[in-house]
Design a protein around this nucleic acid. Structure first.
Length: 422
RNA sequence: GGAGACAUGCCGGAGCGGCCGAACGGACUUCACUGCUAAUGAAGGGUCGGGCUUAAACUCGACCGGGGGUUCAAAUCCCCCUGUCUCCGCCA
């Protein structure tokens, strides 16, 4: 939710942001008009209401014989108030609709334009070279008995899979490595519900344009979350947080469910794009003044993870037109996937400033004692998808895979896994 | 699955349809007292929005789980929803 005060005080900035995202800047003028109409309707209602309240006091203290006349007059007033209140509610709803078309204000420096207009901030690691034809993760997964896609499809359909043996252990190890990394950096682990009520799904903005990405269970009117961000964002809704000791950092561990409705034919091979996977997600409630620094910290922690796993990657500043509606800036880290000859997204971290928190009424107390929306940030610390880059990057000519040192303690010291171990 | 009770501010807990933004306690903040702490005394409070403002102050409206309704007037009466708890049954 956009800050209505900003809409009034600096409509130009809002217009610029909408343009950078490729949205119609006219949405801003419509929202401003709706805001004015809303305030006018509200003032009308409140004036009448004040009159009615005053009248009520007279009725109470009037002598008995004067009461009938007063009540007759009061009845008229009551119907006027009722009508004015209905108008005010309508105007309020109209404003909310208009305001919802305005996405979060993009931070200065974010590249304008669409998906292809991202800026590469830095790259890390050499692009790995092999003196044998590298196998893709599906082939490696089969050789190692680690990934079973055929049976995944048999049991649940396309984009489902079994992780088995080394693959299953690898995912758990990866999640545990990430969890320990989070713990060292002061995160509180949280295992979140993956089914949420419609209000929470709506409040976190996932039932907007991307509603068809979300699994819905109509019998119970519950939604399966595509990321623990949903539950983590809802966790402190309607609360005033104490941020005096620094930001509140949570590491949410959950299974994630995505319909992938708009991506038919895309990444159909393997486990790159699936309906169900696990993810360890960082989620931070921060003072808005500290949000951009915190965002840098989140990227840094993500990079530490990828580096410790020996993956080559680039960090990109995602273009405005490719940001989610709540994000003011987003950094993706894409790891090199040898058999695809390109970088693929492994992590994503967004700074949502106060946009998400305003709608969820998550506030903190400023120095003056007033409340203001907190800034929320999120970022991936590990997901199932990482297995793709891990297997492919660390493969050997015999189809075996070297385990990065950081992961070994989580695999009972295992340094490598070969087809004959399967 | 069946039956019932409850939902009030940071917490506990009152609350005849108008005198209730809400008693009383506790916590908290400020001040006083005390060499310090503790204790004691006094005072003060919430949230959201509108108006007016650089801001504060001021002022108006709304908020007693959520949504409707009755009424001139609802924390209070009625209906629906959600949640919590208790008992019985069932399953583990």
């Amino acid at each position: 939710m956009i800050d209505p005060a900003l809409l009034r005080s600096n409509p130009e900035a809002v217009r610029r942001s909408q343009e950078a995202r490729g949205n119609d800047p006219e949405t801003v003028d419509l929202a401003i008009a709706a805001d004015e109409a809303r305030r006018a309707a509200l003032t009308g209602f409140e004036t009448l209401r004040a009159e009615q309240n005053e009248f009520g006091k007279q009725v109470r203290s009037a002598p008995k014989d004067e009461k009938p006349a007063l009540i007759a007059r009061a009845q008229e007033l009551a119907s006027q108030v009722k009508a004015a209140e209905a108008r005010a509610k309508e105007a309020e709803a109209a404003f909310e609709t208009a305001a919802s078309r305005i996405e979060n204000i993009v931070i200065d420096g974010v590249p304008a334009g669409g998906e292809e207009q991202f800026v590469t901030l830095r790259t890390h690691g050499q692009i790995p070279q092999y003196d044998f034809p590298p196998r893709d993760h599906v082939e490696l997964g089969e050789l190692l008995g680690a990934i079973d896609i055929q049976r995944g499809a048999k049991v649940s359909g396309s984009r489902f899979y079994f992780l088995r043996g080394f693959g299953a252990r690898l995912e758990i190890a990866l999640m545990n490595l990430a969890l320990d990394h989070a713990l060292r950096n002061g995160f509180t682990p949280l295992i979140t519900p993956t089914l949420v009520r419609s209000e929470v799904m709506r409040g976190t903005g996932f039932l907007g344009e991307h509603a068809d990405e979300v699994y819905h269970l109509p019998a119970d009117d519950l939604y399966l979350t595509g990321t623990s961000e949903v539950a983590l964002a809802g966790y402190h809704s309607d609360e005033i947080l104490d941020l005096s000791a620094g930001p509140l950092r949570y590491a949410g561990w959950s299974t994630c469910y995505r319909r992938e409705a708009g991506s038919h034919g895309k990444d159909t091979r393997g486990i790159l794009r699936v309906h169900q996977f696990n993810k360890l997600e960082m989620f931070v409630y921060a003072d808005p003044a500290d949000a951009e620094h915190e965002h840098e910290r989140l990227v840094a922690w993500q990079e530490e993870m990828l580096q410790s796993l020996g993956l080559s990657y680039r960090v990109i500043d995602v273009a405005a037109g490719d940001l989610g509606s709540s994000a003011a800036r987003k950094f993706d880290i894409e790891a090199w996937v040898p058999t695809q000859g390109t970088y693929r997204e492994l992590t994503s971290t967004s700074n949502c400033t106060g946009y998400q928190a305003r709608r969820l009424a998550t506030r903190y107390r400023t120095e003056t004692g007033k409340t203001a929306p907190v800034a929320t940030l999120n970022g991936t610390l590990a997901t199932t998808r990482w297995i793709v880059a891990l297997l492919e990057t660390h493969q050997r000519a015999d189809g075996g895979v070297t385990v990065p040192e950081a992961l070994r303690p989580y695999l009972g010291g295992l340094a490598a896994f070969a087809p004959e171990d399967a």
